Simulated assay, not measured.
Amino acid sequence: MSLDNQHIKIRSAVLGAAGYSGAELCALLTANPYFELCYAFASAGREPEPFASLYPRFQQQIDILVEPWSDNLIEKLDIDAAFLALPHEASEEIAPKLLAKGIKVFDLSGAFRLKQPELYPQYYGYAHQHPELLAQAVYSLMEWQTGPLGDLVSVPGCYPTACSLALLPVLKAHLVADDCIPVISATSGVSGAGRKASLSTSFCEVGLNAYGFFKHRHRPEIEQNLGRKVVFTPHLGNFKRGILATCVVNLKAGVTPEQVTEAFTAAYQHKPLIRFSSKSPNVADVAGTPFCDLFWQQDGEQLVIMSAIDNLLKGAAAQAMQAANVRFAKPEIAGLLPGALV
């Protein structure tokens, strides 16, 4: 598919452009020849600021002004797509207003990920104000996306992306014991906590620690994806970006290594952003890329699956870009890899 026979570029805006995931979205949209980054917004009350002054590494690459957001701007926006890299409650408030104007919404928060509104007070700390949109939102774990993407796309969380991509092949192939509860231990870099300064995520304070026992907001999302309960323990590591997830399951009696390999091959042989590794993956090898690296090791009925992603890219902005490419009938990985115009 060549760019010459495509329609006019898809006009886009990023809300939350001052944050880490929002900045990555700005970069991806600028690199994607099918999209045009028309607006970049940050929180209300900020002074307008050149994007490159917020992120100097993008000097002479991204020339756009990051402006303060106001809902009054919605009527003036001439865009096709809005990417929301916002806090959950802010996304939930703004998304319906954008949808009412006919703008396609790609939300990177957790505002529309869970299908059960009663889970939001428990895991997100607030009551969902637009439960009707939970049924409308299409959850975009792209390697497992089968139906059409609608006007409201909910981009998966970073931990659920890493864990689900690791476990779904063997679960869908019915290789896991029926009574098995997967045990997941996953470690994220400090960028997962956002850009706002905090003592708990300062490099001088962070070593390696677990948190969110049984109560982490990504647990019900993972369980929703896998269709079964899990034991999920997240950790914070002293590195900037990336997630390494270790997933342990018990297989059904008699399942062979060849069957496990076939399950992964059948699931991902035509998925260009999945890479199989010959050894345990390293977050350093996926940092700055849209890939998910997978490795598995079997011992009898026990199976360990390792998954590594960049939390800001495959776990956020790159998956949003994948979804937008598909929603607008463009090549799925356009703008994500060099020479990806196919």
Rank of each mutant, 00 (worst) to 15 (best):
Cys26Tyr: 12
Pro56Tyr: 13
Gln60Leu: 06
Ser43Lys: 14
Glu67Asp: 09
Asp78Ala: 00
Tyr20Asn: 11
Asp63Met: 10
Ala42Thr: 15
Pro33Gly: 02
Ile74Phe: 00
Leu37Met: 04
Leu54Lys: 12
Ala23Gln: 15
Leu73Lys: 14
Asp63Arg: 11
Tyr34Asp: 08
Ala31Arg: 05
Leu54His: 13
Tyr55Thr: 03
Tyr20Cys: 01
Tyr20Asp: 06
Ser43Leu: 09
Ala44Phe: 06
Leu73Ser: 04
Glu47Ile: 04
Ala23Val: 02
Glu36Ser: 08
Phe58Ser: 12
Glu47Trp: 05
Ala31His: 08
Pro48Cys: 01
Trp69His: 10
Phe35Val: 11
Glu47Asn: 10
Thr30Trp: 07
Ile74Arg: 00
Asp63Thr: 02
Ser43Pro: 14
Ile74His: 00
Ala31Tyr: 06
Phe58Lys: 10
Phe35Ser: 04
Tyr20Ser: 06
Ala27Lys: 08
Leu65Met: 14
Leu54Val: 03
Ser53Met: 12
Gln60Asp: 15
Ile74Gly: 00
Pro48Arg: 07
Ser43Phe: 08
Gly19Asn: 09
Ala52Tyr: 13
Gln61Gly: 00
Gly22Asp: 07
Leu73Ala: 03
Leu37Asp: 14
Glu75Met: 03
Tyr20Gln: 11
Glu36Trp: 00
Phe58Trp: 15
Phe58Pro: 09
Ala44Tyr: 07
Asp63Trp: 12
Ile62Gly: 01
Tyr34Met: 08
Glu36Gly: 03
Leu77Phe: 05
Tyr39Phe: 06
Arg57Lys: 13
Gly45Glu: 10
Asp71Phe: 00
Phe58His: 14
Ile64Pro: 07
Leu73Phe: 10
Phe58Gly: 06
Phe41Glu: 01
Ala40Gly: 01
Ala31Asn: 09
Val66Gly: 01
Trp69Asn: 07
Glu49Ser: 09
Ile62Thr: 08
Ser53Trp: 09
Phe58Thr: 04
Leu29Gly: 04
Arg46Trp: 10
Thr30Val: 06
Ala31Asp: 14
Leu37Val: 03
Arg46Lys: 13
Ser53Thr: 13
Arg46Val: 05
Tyr20His: 12
Asp78Gln: 12
Ala31Leu: 06
Tyr20Pro: 02
Glu24Lys: 12
Ala23Glu: 13
Asn32Tyr: 01
Asp78Pro: 02
Glu67Val: 07
Asp71Lys: 04
Phe35Cys: 04
Gly45Lys: 15
Leu65His: 11
Gly19Thr: 05
Tyr39Thr: 05
Pro48His: 02
Glu47Phe: 03
Gly19Glu: 05
Gln60Phe: 07
Ala40Lys: 11
Ala23Tyr: 15
Gln60Thr: 06
Leu25Ser: 10
Ala27Tyr: 15
Phe41Trp: 09
Ala52Thr: 06
Glu75Asp: 15
Tyr39Asp: 02
Asn72His: 14
Ala44Asp: 12
